[in-house]
Deep mutational scan, measured.
Amino acid sequence: MASDGVVVEIGKVTGSVGTTVEIPVYFRGVPSKGIANCDFVFRYDPNVLEIIGIDPGDIIVDPNPTKSFDTAIYPDRKIIVFLFAEDSGTGAYAITKDGVFAKIRATVKSSAPGYITFDEVGGFADNDLVEQKVSFIDGGVNVGNATPTKGATPTNTATPTK
């Protein structure tokens, strides 16, 4: 695992066909100046998982989280898009600690492993708008004895992609 920078880890949970599971997305290594904004994309298989919603985690402190935390689910493109932009203008609602960034709610549709993997990152910046190093650890849903650990090695991303 990367020793510096922010680590975004997609949790690994267990479920069975027809059940709804909650998959946490963790941030670790949050910089001392916090995270003022970030955007990134995960990939998944809508034939295996139906993403039914995404909720902000406990490290989102904006009293009205829909102003700073936004997501979009595109089953036709097989992606989930995340956007966080601190909304106070003063840094008061920045992410300042490690913990759960988001909770992905999904219904298991198939007995195949439900991988959720890193696809791309736009950027991560602290309260001074300084770009942060970030790496990703894939996860998803274990169905029966299947284990979604494909790509469990962190993917280092030093520069934003478009």
Rank of each mutant, 00 (worst) to 15 (best):
S3C: 03
S3G: 15
S3W: 09
D4C: 02
D4P: 07
D4S: 04
D4R: 08
G5C: 06
V6H: 08
V6K: 02
V7L: 10
V7W: 14
V8Y: 00
V8Q: 03
E9N: 07
E9I: 08
E9F: 02
E9A: 07
I10N: 12
I10R: 00
I10V: 10
I10K: 07
G11C: 13
K12C: 05
K12A: 07
K12N: 04
K12W: 10
V13F: 04
T14K: 12
G15P: 09
G15S: 06
S16W: 01
G18W: 03
G18V: 09
G18P: 12
T19C: 12
T19W: 03
T20C: 11
V21P: 07
V21G: 05
E22K: 06
I23H: 13
I23N: 03
I23F: 05
P24I: 05
P24A: 04
P24V: 03
P24C: 06
V25R: 00
Y26W: 01
R28H: 07
G29H: 07
V30H: 08
P31D: 07
G34V: 08
G34D: 15
G34K: 05
G34E: 04
I35Y: 02
I35G: 02
A36V: 06
A36R: 00
N37A: 14
N37I: 01
N37E: 01
C38S: 08
C38W: 01
D39R: 00
F40L: 02
F40C: 02
F40G: 01
V41A: 01
V41N: 00
R43L: 09
Y44T: 06
D45K: 13
P46R: 08
N47R: 06
N47K: 05
V48E: 03
V48D: 06
V48C: 05
L49Y: 15
L49E: 02
I51P: 04
I51M: 02
I51T: 09
G53P: 11
G53T: 10
D55I: 06
D55Q: 06
D55F: 14
D55T: 10
P56F: 11
P56H: 08
G57W: 13
G57T: 09
D58V: 09
D58R: 12
I59G: 12
I59H: 14
I60G: 04
I60L: 11
I60S: 10
V61S: 12
D62A: 15
D62I: 15
P63I: 12
P63L: 15
P63R: 12
P63S: 13
N64L: 07
N64F: 05
N64K: 13
P65A: 11
P65T: 14
P65Y: 12
T66R: 13
K67Y: 14
S68L: 09
F69H: 06
F69A: 06
F69K: 01
F69S: 07
D70V: 15
T71A: 02
T71F: 02
T71S: 05
T71C: 04
T71M: 03
T71K: 06
A72C: 01
A72Q: 00
A72D: 00
I73V: 07
I73S: 04
I73M: 02
I73G: 01
Y74L: 01
P75C: 04
R77P: 12
R77C: 01
K78A: 06
K78G: 13
I79H: 01
V81S: 00
V81E: 01
F82A: 01
F82L: 03
L83I: 00
L83H: 01
F84W: 06
E86D: 01
E86L: 01
D87S: 15
S88F: 14
G89E: 00
G89I: 15
G89P: 04
G89C: 03
T90P: 01
G91C: 04
G91E: 11
G91I: 06
G91V: 03
A92K: 08
A92P: 03
A92W: 15
A92R: 08
Y93P: 01
Y93L: 11
A94T: 06
A94Q: 03
A94E: 07
A94N: 02
I95H: 03
I95M: 13
I95K: 01
I95Y: 03
K97E: 10
K97T: 09
D98T: 10
D98N: 05
G99N: 14
G99A: 09
G99T: 10
V100R: 11
V100S: 13
F101D: 04
F101S: 06
A102R: 14
A102T: 10
K103D: 14
K103L: 11
I104H: 05
R105I: 03
R105C: 07
R105S: 13
T107C: 05
T107G: 12
V108K: 07
V108E: 09
V108M: 14
V108S: 12
S110A: 14
S111C: 14
A112E: 08
G114L: 07
Y115T: 09
I116F: 04
F118L: 06
D119G: 06
D119F: 06
D119A: 12
D119R: 02
G122I: 00
G122L: 00
G122C: 01
G122S: 00
G122Q: 00
A125V: 01
A125I: 00
A125P: 00
D126F: 00
N127E: 03
D128N: 04
V130K: 06
E131V: 02
E131Q: 10
E131N: 07
E131F: 01
V134P: 12
S135F: 06
S135Q: 12
S135E: 04
I137G: 09
D138E: 05
G139E: 05
G139S: 12
G140F: 10
G140D: 11
G140N: 14
G140Q: 14
G140E: 06
V141A: 12
N142C: 11
V143K: 10
V143Y: 11
V143F: 14
N145R: 11
A146W: 04
T147N: 12
T147L: 13
P148A: 06
T149H: 13
K150R: 09
A152P: 12
T155I: 10
T157F: 10
A158I: 10
A158S: 12
A158E: 11
A158D: 08
T159F: 14
T159P: 12
T159R: 09
P160N: 13
P160H: 14
P160T: 13
T161W: 14
T161M: 10
